[in-house]
Simulated scan of single mutants.
Amino acid sequence: MIAIIDYGMGNLYNVKNALDALGVDSMITSKKEDLQKADKLILPGVGAMQDCMLNLEKSGLKETIIDFVLHQKKPLLGICLGMQALFESSEENGHTKGFGFIKGNVIKMEDTNVRIPHIGWNDLQFVKDMPLKDKFSKAPFVYYVHSYYASDYDKEDLVAYSEYGNMKICGVIMHGHVMGCQFHPEKSAEDGLKILKYFVEEFV
């Protein structure tokens, strides 16, 4: 069972519909007991990092997620804002601490030559050969919606990126049994479904 974490922010039903299209057993839930019993978790998110972490803390889900990842050692996928929450901190709204599952910080996108926020399709470039790369089309394009991006991460954790102006956008990152996508796989057509399928069936 895949549990999609409902903390009041995120494209919950788009993610659920994508998993349904893959024939994956999943649920949208805000109940701690459901998260604890799940095989894997998905943390979606749209909005501001500060609101994200506050909502998770107020609902009591933050500690449940920490226990799931650090003590139960089960897989977690963060999508968009959900991926940013996996890092140590974000400079959005001053400074907000993230989960710290992955080394790195989230900073504001700044480049006067491109439109910000970064909205729309962009190509995804892999930095290493791995099973996930082989599942994508030869020229994968994915859908982004964001104004902040990851920096100062361990290069060994980076799986794939996109270029936007002079910025190198961390598209896919993995560390242990934690995985993040800055883009929205649930909105990224066949390539997006492939990454969700990989998380469900192969990512450990």
Score class of each variant (00 low, 15 high):
residue 162 S to I: 01
residue 68 F to P: 04
residue 28 I to Q: 09
residue 146 H to W: 11
residue 136 F to P: 12
residue 16 K to H: 12
residue 172 V to L: 13
residue 203 F to I: 07
residue 203 F to N: 14
residue 32 K to D: 14
residue 38 A to F: 05
residue 115 R to W: 02
residue 188 S to F: 00
residue 64 T to F: 00
residue 43 L to S: 12
residue 184 H to T: 01
residue 203 F to H: 13
residue 43 L to D: 08
residue 131 P to R: 15
residue 96 T to N: 12
residue 35 L to G: 02
residue 176 G to R: 05
residue 63 E to N: 13
residue 6 D to A: 02
residue 4 I to Q: 04
residue 121 W to S: 12
residue 163 E to F: 00
residue 201 E to P: 08
residue 61 L to T: 07
residue 21 A to D: 11
residue 148 Y to W: 06
residue 151 S to V: 10
residue 50 Q to F: 09
residue 112 T to K: 11
residue 173 I to P: 06
residue 22 L to V: 01
residue 72 Q to K: 15
residue 164 Y to G: 01
residue 123 D to M: 08
residue 57 E to H: 05
residue 56 L to F: 08
residue 117 P to I: 04
residue 146 H to D: 14
residue 45 G to N: 06
residue 93 N to Y: 08
residue 200 V to P: 03
residue 159 V to G: 07
residue 142 V to S: 09
residue 74 K to T: 07
residue 4 I to S: 12
residue 181 C to H: 03
residue 65 I to S: 14
residue 46 V to K: 05
residue 22 L to N: 03
residue 30 S to E: 12
residue 96 T to Q: 15
residue 104 G to E: 10
residue 179 M to T: 01
residue 31 K to H: 13
residue 115 R to Y: 01
residue 106 V to S: 10
residue 14 N to T: 05
residue 117 P to T: 07
residue 21 A to E: 11
residue 154 D to R: 09
residue 142 V to D: 04
residue 108 K to S: 12
residue 45 G to C: 06
residue 102 I to W: 03
residue 110 E to H: 11
residue 76 L to F: 05
residue 8 G to F: 02
residue 154 D to Q: 04
residue 109 M to N: 09
residue 48 A to H: 13
residue 81 L to E: 11
residue 169 I to G: 06
residue 102 I to E: 09
residue 181 C to I: 01
residue 69 V to K: 02
residue 62 K to M: 10
residue 190 E to V: 09
residue 4 I to N: 08
residue 53 M to Q: 08
residue 57 E to K: 15
residue 37 K to F: 00
residue 44 P to D: 14
residue 74 K to A: 08
residue 14 N to F: 01
residue 134 D to I: 04
residue 144 Y to A: 02
residue 19 L to K: 03
residue 109 M to Y: 12
residue 136 F to Y: 15
residue 62 K to W: 08
residue 28 I to A: 12
residue 140 P to D: 06
residue 39 D to H: 14
residue 89 S to L: 05
residue 150 A to S: 12
residue 71 H to M: 04
residue 120 G to K: 02
residue 42 I to W: 07
residue 42 I to C: 07
residue 69 V to M: 13
residue 190 E to H: 06
residue 45 G to P: 02
residue 108 K to L: 08
residue 91 E to S: 13
residue 37 K to I: 00
residue 121 W to A: 11
residue 161 Y to M: 06
residue 183 F to W: 05
residue 172 V to G: 05
residue 104 G to T: 10
residue 20 D to H: 00
residue 45 G to R: 04
residue 165 G to R: 00
residue 144 Y to C: 01
residue 186 E to Y: 02
residue 11 N to W: 01
residue 139 A to G: 03
residue 53 M to I: 10
residue 17 N to A: 14
residue 10 G to D: 13
residue 119 I to W: 03
residue 198 Y to C: 12
residue 136 F to I: 08
residue 166 N to A: 07
residue 155 K to M: 14
residue 69 V to A: 06
residue 160 A to N: 08
residue 134 D to V: 04
residue 67 D to Q: 15
residue 151 S to Y: 08
residue 71 H to R: 14
residue 64 T to S: 15
residue 191 D to N: 15
residue 103 K to D: 14
residue 121 W to P: 13
residue 137 S to M: 11
residue 158 L to W: 03
residue 97 K to G: 12
residue 54 L to S: 15
residue 111 D to E: 09
residue 21 A to T: 00
residue 137 S to H: 09
residue 100 G to W: 00
residue 160 A to C: 07
residue 129 D to W: 06
residue 105 N to P: 06
residue 58 K to E: 13
residue 24 V to R: 07
residue 168 K to F: 05
residue 106 V to E: 09
residue 75 P to R: 03
residue 85 A to I: 01
residue 30 S to P: 01
residue 128 K to W: 10
